[in-house]
Amino acid sequence: MTSRVMLISPAMNAALREARFDDGCPLDPSGLRAARAAADTLKSPDRALASPTARCRETAAALGLDIEETPGPAGLDVGRWRGATLTEVSADEPEAVARWLTDPESAPHGGESVRALCDRAGLWLDAAASDDGRVVAVVEPEVVRAVVVRVLGAPESAFWRVDVPPLTATELSGRGGRWNVRVGRALEGPF
């Protein structure tokens, strides 16, 4: 059986625009318009999920996805850095930010490490892939990064080298734990 999982990054919101650690803010008007405009590009999936954040759930709704109550994987827990910009945190805690960006096991913010996120996202993907049919999940960009790292067998240090623009699809297909990856496709044509 071939498994098909499509991960969609959320549309633009103030946190993404300001390079701020997500604090639960909704989509901004341009993000909402872009997601609604992309709604006709998706074929109806067998199963649709969304991370529990406002921007993921609102993106899924604007895309016309009828998401299940079981959420997709949550984004990276950044602990006390939530709501701050990377510039602010870098000014206040430069050593902690440097450690966080270079050591996948580090969680100086009191939240979750990149390694823990990669492990959690990998387990979620294994569970999602065990279902028949096509799964579409609107998830935070860091979840997309973590899944790509896991399916390619890359070290967690590669996490920061994966760029995930807003409202793009990362398509995974495979069987027996071997995946093919199509990264960063803009939602502009039928999927």
Rank of each mutant, 00 (worst) to 15 (best):
D40S: 15
R47F: 12
V149E: 06
E112V: 01
A107I: 01
E18P: 00
E188R: 08
D126G: 10
V114F: 03
A121F: 01
S130T: 09
D23C: 05
A154S: 10
G79D: 07
G64H: 04
M1I: 08
T85C: 07
E112M: 01
A84H: 14
G174I: 06
T102V: 04
R36N: 05
E188W: 02
R80C: 07
S9W: 04
L152H: 13
G64C: 03
V114H: 05
A128L: 02
A50G: 03
S44K: 14
W179V: 00
L86T: 15
D23E: 10
V136C: 00
W160I: 05
G176L: 11
G177Q: 07
R150D: 14
A60F: 00
R115V: 06
A96D: 05
A158K: 15
E188M: 08
K43L: 15
V181K: 02
R175T: 13
P165G: 03
R150L: 08
A74D: 05
D40M: 11
R115Y: 05
R115G: 10
D132T: 15
A121E: 02
A116G: 11
G176R: 15
R17V: 13
A158Q: 15
R80W: 06
A154R: 14
A19F: 08
A38Q: 02
S113A: 04
W179Y: 05
R115I: 02
A137I: 01
A61I: 05
T102H: 13
T85S: 13
V144H: 01
D46C: 04
P141W: 02
A146T: 04
L187M: 07
A74W: 00
S9T: 12
E140R: 01
E171V: 08
E171K: 06
L86P: 04
K43S: 15
L7G: 05
R47Y: 11
A96E: 08
E142L: 14
V151W: 03
C118G: 12
D119F: 05
G111N: 10
A62K: 01
S130D: 15
G111R: 04
V143I: 09
A35Q: 02
G75I: 00
V114P: 07
M6D: 15
T85P: 06
A14W: 01
P10E: 02
L49K: 00
E142H: 13
A62V: 03
R82L: 06
V78C: 11
P166Y: 00
P10W: 02
T87N: 11
S90K: 13
R182L: 13
C56V: 01
V147M: 06
P45L: 08
A129R: 12
L152G: 12
M12Q: 09
D103G: 05
P10M: 06
P155K: 04
C25N: 11
A39C: 09
A34D: 14
T2L: 11
D28N: 12
E171G: 12
E156F: 01
P141E: 10
F21A: 10
N180M: 12
L187F: 04
A48D: 08
T59R: 00
E58Q: 14
W100H: 13
W100Q: 09
E93A: 14
R55V: 02
D103A: 05
A62S: 03
G83H: 01
T53H: 01
P94H: 10
R120G: 12
